[in-house]
Design a binder for these strands. Structure first.
Lengths: 156, 156
DNA sequence: CAAAGGTATGAATATTCTTTCAAATTACCG
DNA sequence: CGGTAATTTGAAAGAATATTCATACCTTTG
C-alpha cells in the first residue's frame, strides 16, 4: 500500500501544520475524520519518518511541529508555491570561500531561502535571505558541484 | 533556590547542545556527573521551560535539541540568564566584509547566538553558530561601530 | 517573628510514545 | 503466474515522559 501511505503522510503534514495537536491520539482522530483511519503505533512511525517533533508553543502547550516551521522564522513569514518559485527563482549562483551567493528576482529571496531550508541540503549550514540575494553558508570542504546541483534542481 | 535552578538550566543547555542524548534519564546521568543531581520529573519541567524538544537526527535517532534559530518570546526567567552568558560570552569580534566573526568559549556559541537573535540588532541579518564561533551576517552598509557596541554591550 | 503566598522539588502515578512481534499486504524476479 | 523478499500494519508490551500531590523552602508583609 505504498500509495496509501504516501498520501497519508501528506495529510499528516497538512493537519499538523494547520492545527495545534498535542498527542498522537488527537492526530489519530483527525486522520480518521479525514478518511485515513490508522493506529497510534503507525502514527509514531509516520511522525518519525516525517521528522515531526513535539515542541513547546508560546502558551507552553506541547505541540507537534513540522521541521520547516522551526526554520520558518529564520527567513520569512509567508508560504507561496515555494517549490515552483525555487525552480525558476534562482538567477545566478556564485561561490566565495565557504559561501554561496544566490540572486533571485527582487522580493523572492526569502521564499527561495525558505525552500532551501526545507530541503536540508547536506553541506549547507544555513541561509540568510535579503531582498534579491540569499547567502548560503557552506560546510567547510563542501563540494561546490554537489551544492550547485542541489540549489538548482527541483526538490523531492 | 533560584540561583541553583538557573545554573542548572544553563548546564542543561550546554550538555544538550554538545551531546546527542535520547532520553531524560541519560541527561539525568550527565547532570549528576556535572554536579547537578536531580530527578527525571524536574528534567521534564526544565526541558519544557527551555523549550528543548526531542527531534530526529540524521540517523533517525531521537535526540534532544535546542530550538536552533528560533526567535521566540523572551520568557523572562530564562532570558535573564542568557543575557549574563552573553555579557561574558564574547571573546573577540572581527569584521570581514559584511560578516562579523565572534569567538566564544567552546560550547557557548549557540547560546550567545541565541541571545543575539533575541536582541534583533538593527543591521544584523542573521547568525550561524558553530561550537565556539558565531558568524554574524550584517546588512550591507551596516555601521561596524554600532554593531560592535550592540554585540558586546549589555542591553537596557 | 508569624502567617501567607509563591516557587522548586521528589516520589508516585498517569499519560503518552516507541518498539517488538506476528500477520498481512505489496513489490520483485525468475 | 508462483515464490520470495521487503514493506506496512495493528495489538500488546515496554519505555519514556508529563503531571499530580505533598512537602520543603524562600520571600514578603504586617
Amino acid at each position: 500500500m505504498r500509495q496509501n501511505k504516501d498520501t497519508r503522510l501528506e495529510v499528516i503534514k497538512m493537519i499538523v501544520s494547520s492545527q495545534e495537536l498535542s498527542t498522537q491520539e488527537e492526530l489519530m482522530t483527525e486522520l480518521q475524520t479525514a478518511g485515513f483511519p490508522t493506529t497510534q503505533a503507525t502514527l509514531s512511525r509516520d511522525l518519525k519518518q516525517l521528522r515531526i517533533s513535539k515542541g513547546h508553543n508560546e502558551q507552553g502547550r506541547y505541540t507537534y511541529m513540522l521541521p520547516s516551521q522551526q526554520r520558518y522564522q529564520r527567513v520569512s513569514d509567508t508560504h507561496v508555491a515555494v517549490q515552483n518559485l525555487n525552480r525558476m527563482g534562482v538567477i545566478s549562483v556564485k561561490f566565495s570561500g565557504n559561501l554561496a551567493v544566490l540572486r533571485t528576482p527582487t522580493g523572492y529571496a526569502s521564499h527561495v531561502a525558505y525552500d532551501l531550508d526545507c530541503k536540508e541540503i547536506p553541506g549547507v549550514l544555513g541561509t540568510i535571505a535579503g531582498d534579491d540575494t540569499i547567502l548560503v553558508i557552506l560546510e567547510e570542504g563542501a563540494n561546490r558541484e554537489d551544492i550547485l546541483n542541489q540549489l538548482t534542481v527541483q526538490p523531492q
